[in-house]
Simulated assay, not measured.
Amino acid sequence: MTGPVFFTEELSNSKVAAIYPSAELARRQAERLRQAMSLSARQVQVLVPGERHPGRKLEPESHNIFRTMIWAHVRLGVIGAIAGLMVYVALRMADIPAVDQSPWLSWLMLVMYGGIFGLMLGGLVTLRPDHDRYVMRVQEALGEGDSAVVVHATSAWQKARAKEFLEAGGAETASTL
């Protein structure tokens, strides 16, 4: 694993799931994928119908969600405030009358709104809306009696290669961003 990504504090931000009609086929494909890409057993897991806690294999880093929440908000809030400050400086340099007439209020409002916008982006990163389709598709498949191979990629390249490999084997895939 390469280490946490700047905003999420997770080791694996990208995930790919492939749906198979039988547990045996899923296990074989998982093993082939592990060997073909030199992935660890923690990165490639098989989920079967009746699994007690499928969420642990789908999102194994859920314990990091609190850290992700804090750091995404702090980092993006600061970046937003800095962006607001840069907008203020640009408007001052452009001699915008509204900014020139009330510089302190303009500075305060632009920095504050930039920070608030950054905090809202931090909330979006924390929610991880890109994971919904992936999680729901796997849970739906498990409910229908199918099995799934889940890959926790540590890079975009690894995710793309795993997805290609699984689709080449005839599987339907669902992935995160």
Rank of each mutant, 00 (worst) to 15 (best):
M1L: 01
G3M: 00
P4G: 14
P4I: 08
P4N: 12
V5A: 13
V5R: 15
E9F: 03
E9N: 10
S14W: 14
K15S: 04
A17P: 02
A18V: 08
I19F: 06
I19K: 02
S22W: 06
S22V: 08
A23F: 08
E24G: 00
L25R: 13
A26L: 02
R28E: 00
A30D: 06
L33F: 09
L33K: 05
L33D: 02
R34L: 05
R34E: 10
A36I: 03
A36R: 13
A36N: 07
M37G: 04
M37F: 07
S38P: 04
L39W: 02
L39D: 00
A41C: 05
Q43P: 00
V44A: 00
Q45T: 07
V46W: 00
V46K: 04
L47Y: 06
L47C: 03
L47F: 00
G50E: 11
H53D: 12
P54K: 04
G55Y: 01
P60W: 00
E61N: 01
E61G: 13
N64F: 11
N64K: 15
R67E: 03
M69S: 13
M69C: 11
W71E: 09
V74L: 15
L76Q: 13
L76H: 14
G77T: 02
V78L: 15
V78T: 02
I79C: 05
G80V: 04
A83Y: 02
G84Q: 10
G84V: 14
L85V: 03
M86Q: 06
M86N: 04
M86F: 15
M86G: 11
V87P: 05
A90W: 10
A90E: 11
L91S: 04
R92L: 14
D95C: 09
D95M: 09
V99D: 11
V99I: 15
Q101R: 15
Q101L: 12
Q101H: 13
S102A: 11
W104Y: 00
W107T: 02
W107D: 07
W107H: 12
M112G: 12
G114R: 11
F117S: 14
F117Q: 07
G122K: 14
G122W: 09
L127P: 05
P129G: 01
V135N: 09
R137M: 12
A141G: 06
L142P: 01
L142R: 05
A148Q: 01
V151C: 08
V151P: 00
A153E: 10
S155T: 15
Q158E: 15
Q158W: 04
A160S: 12
A162H: 08
K163H: 11
E164C: 05
E164Y: 03
F165E: 10
F165D: 12
E167Q: 08
A171D: 07
A174K: 04
T176C: 09
T176G: 00
T176N: 05
